[in-house]
Design a binder for these strands. Structure first.
Lengths: 296, 296
DNA sequence: CACCTCATTTCGATATATTCGAAGTATTTT
DNA sequence: AAAATACTTCGAATATATCGAAATGAGGTG
């Protein structure tokens, strides 16, 4: 009663256009399929197929029921695919934290590749700030972290260096006034203007670090909010140099003493994450992305 | 591979709280279920159950997969219910036409009763006007018609009489002026005001009939549109007397010569409609509704 | 700590169902 | 009219599903 093979075969006979063709596909003989279909008909007490010449076609009821059964079969196939994937060591869900300071463009296609190879794996991406990612690693919410920080007690892999440059809107006084033509903005100049800071996403930690030298601060939760504010001329901020190319309204502040913050991009993951197939694929693809960048 | 019984049994073991209990429910022995579950595990290469003390519980993967399988089983049950219903002669769809002039309140609960008894049957209700319903009967779009008209060549069952009375908004001149206190509205009075008419929903037919004595006409497509217009004082119309109770803003025009259009409510259905279980139920319920009204 | 009980598993026998190949039937093509 | 095609029926070999009985193992009990 719960065996769906007769339905699958019935639908196969229709789709492949004949008992013989379907039998080939299912590696059975035509008599097997014919018998199963007859049995199905007698079980439900309805005739599902009939002759159109010497060709087997669905009756009206057969059409109705096969249409109703198709989604059931599709859904079952999906569930079976999930089981197969799980059996091969593919994780059902991949939780990763990526600091917002990492330009997602660097690794955007990585996710498409993983999603294509492991369609049954759901990806949960947390866009963290500063200590937020490491905190999620420590509490086990995520199994992989990509950002500039280190995670205490976990080995980190340095992939690349990220240059953080001070920047502001083209219309901002730091660009238009303070020695714009000769690149003579000083740290003292910076202190006179409002700095946009992104709030640490770690549960309980006060903001700290080197970029707190400005007197006036404006703290937001998301990088994109910060960029919007900068573009509207509200203040300046230290942003990854690579981000500038996609935001033409932003201008690098030409510092007098060529100060640029540099930070390592660290990849941190736990053993469990690396042992799953999808996780290993994700790690491999991320590394490949940065290896190839190093070469170019 | 497509046999869902092992899944159903696995889920049953969890739901009923034990192998023995589930075995009773499925009319199998515990060993059968145990064997099937073991086989399922070895087929997909994953362990689905484990011990918690001497109680059988799902592993993490077992939980994931059984959650994924539950909707598949539910959907399959739905499809099988449809097959069972069809086998018993229940139609998958019931197409009926009811003239908008018939107050739906008279038979509203009929549809709930049919829908409850035959949940797999979809009901397609066409709200027709005048010749529209009979036309759909003749072209076979619907198998049942409820309205005041006859359908040529088909036996009609008279259920009740429908009194059509002229009515208008309480603020309409026909109510406030033309002999309001003694009920002395004449047909000549009617001709002087705008009548709201509902357009025949038959594909190609000019409006006709007795209610075309008014000079000014306003033709609309839906009864509810007509009522809205009448309530806003735009004109008068002939409406079923029973409809008035649910529209307190409407007032019956007290005619001088107590003219009231009366029409029979006819029930027409074809043999195919009556031979289906849901169709027969619908017919029976409609008749019961009018029989009981006659007694009261 | 030994014993008993309960729930599940394993095992072997039996009944049932599936599958195939061969022969049969109907329909279209040549 | 004969041949080819497409499906069905039939009987036998094979595979599987199911059961009951015995074994296992964990928890509670004296």
């Amino acid at each position: 009663m719960d065996d769906l093979r007769p339905w699958r075969w019935l639908i196969g006979v229709i789709d492949y256009g004949g008992l013989q063709a379907a039998a080939d596909h299912f590696h059975r003989t035509p008599s097997t399929l014919s018998h199963a279909i007859k049995q199905l008909e007698s079980q439900i007490g309805l005739s599902l197929v009939t002759y159109h010449g010497r060709r087997l076609v669905l009756t009206e009821i057969g059409q109705l029921l096969s249409c109703r059964m198709r989604p059931v079969l599709r859904d079952l196939d999906g569930a079976q695919a999930l089981a197969t994937q799980l059996a091969q060591g593919v994780e059902p869900v991949l939780c990763v934290a990526i600091d917002q300071i990492i330009p997602l463009a660097l690794i955007a296609d990585v996710f498409s590749i993983v999603a294509e190879s492991y369609p049954q794996t759901r990806i949960e991406l947390f866009e963290t700030i500063l200590g937020g990612g490491p905190a999620m690693m420590l509490e086990g919410t995520v199994g992989l972290y990509l950002g500039t920080q280190m995670v205490t007690g976990m080995p980190a892999l340095a992939l690349d260096r990220l240059r953080l440059v001070p920047c502001a809107a083209r219309t901002h006084p730091l660009v238009t006034h303070a020695g714009a033509e000769v690149g003579q903005v000083t740290e003292a100049d910076l202190r006179r203007y409002r700095q946009i800071v992104i709030r640490d996403s770690a549960p309980s930690r006060l903001a700290n670090g080197s970029w707190l030298s400005a007197e006036q601060r404006f703290t937001v939760d998301h990088l994109h909010t910060a960029i919007d504010l900068i573009e509207s001329g509200l203040g300046f901020a230290w942003l990854p140099e690579t981000l500038l190319s996609s935001h033409p309204d932003l201008s690098i502040l030409q510092m007098a003493d060529t100060v640029a913050d540099e930070a390592d991009i660290h990849l941190v993951f736990d053993a469990g994450f690396a042992s799953g197939l999808a996780g290993a694929c994700l790690i491999g693809e991320i590394r490949a992305r940065f290896d190839s960048r190093a070469k170019v």
